[in-house]
Simulated scan of single mutants.
Amino acid sequence: MNLDNCPRCGRLYLKNLMGICQVCVRELEQQYETCVKYLRENRGITIQELSDATEISIKEITRFIREGRISIANAPNMMYPCEVCGMLIREGHMCDSCRTRLRKDLTSVTKESALEKESKKDQRGAYKAIDKSRD
């Protein structure tokens, strides 16, 4: 059998696509419904206000938004934190400054890697030339 412990509550459950037990699935659905109902009644609120009013963590609300279950298109003040620095954003996982920094870091690592490969090629060529001259 495919049994596992629920990562949220620790109960033993039969594995499913959600990766959590049925009790936690029902709890998440109830939290989602609470969020949606409160958002319909209060369109101009922030994520912090929603969390305070519904007693649902910002992390869970953010997950609902990222999964596409809660639309923030009609909620102008609804933003969630960047996964890297915590700055409030409306789309994606990172803010523009973190995304730019990540691209810059990846570019520099790629260049360094290319330079290392090039220097190793040069060193191998020099060793081959020495070895050939010895024979």
Rank of each mutant, 00 (worst) to 15 (best):
I45L: 07
R99G: 09
I56N: 01
D135E: 05
Y13N: 05
S97K: 12
T54L: 06
E41P: 01
D135T: 10
R99M: 12
A114H: 00
Q30A: 14
Y13D: 06
K37E: 05
L12H: 01
K111R: 09
Q123A: 15
I45E: 06
T54H: 04
E60K: 07
M87I: 12
L28E: 13
Y13I: 07
R103P: 03
T34P: 06
E83H: 02
L28I: 05
I130S: 01
P81Y: 00
C98S: 00
I58S: 08
E29M: 11
R69H: 04
E91P: 03
V23N: 13
C21L: 10
G44P: 03
V109A: 07
E33P: 02
G92T: 00
P81F: 01
L14R: 09
E41R: 11
R101Q: 08
R99E: 11
M79N: 11
I20Q: 00
G86Q: 01
G10S: 03
M94V: 14
L102P: 04
V109D: 13
E67L: 14
A129D: 09
G92V: 02
C95S: 07
S51I: 05
I45S: 06
C82Y: 02
T100W: 08
C85R: 00
R8A: 09
N5H: 07
C82F: 00
Q22E: 15
N42D: 09
N16M: 02
R63I: 07
T107H: 05
R66E: 09
I47T: 06
M18R: 15
K104M: 10
E83P: 02
L28V: 06
N42Y: 06
K59H: 10
K104F: 11
R134G: 05
N42G: 05
L102T: 10
E118D: 04
T107E: 14
K59W: 08
V109S: 06
D52I: 14
E41Y: 08
A73P: 00
Q48M: 10
S71F: 03
G10D: 04
R8W: 04
C95E: 01
A114V: 06
E116Q: 12
V84M: 10
R69A: 12
M78Y: 04
S71K: 02
C82G: 02
D52V: 12
A75S: 14
D135R: 08
G19R: 01
C9L: 11
T100L: 08
I65T: 01
Y32K: 00
M18H: 12
R69C: 08
S51T: 00
D52M: 14
A75F: 11
R8K: 03
S108L: 13
V23K: 09
K128H: 09
I45T: 02
V25S: 01
G92C: 08
A53H: 03
A75I: 10
E83L: 12
G19N: 04
L17V: 11
V84N: 15
P81E: 05
L115K: 10
E112H: 02
E118V: 00
C82I: 05
K121R: 04
Y80W: 06
E27R: 08
L106S: 13
Y80F: 15
Y38F: 15
Q31F: 07
R8P: 02
I130D: 01
E41T: 08
I130T: 00
P81R: 01
R26N: 14
C6G: 01
L12P: 02
E27Q: 13
A73Q: 11
V23S: 12
S71R: 02
Q22D: 15
V36T: 04
R99F: 07
C9I: 06
V84G: 03
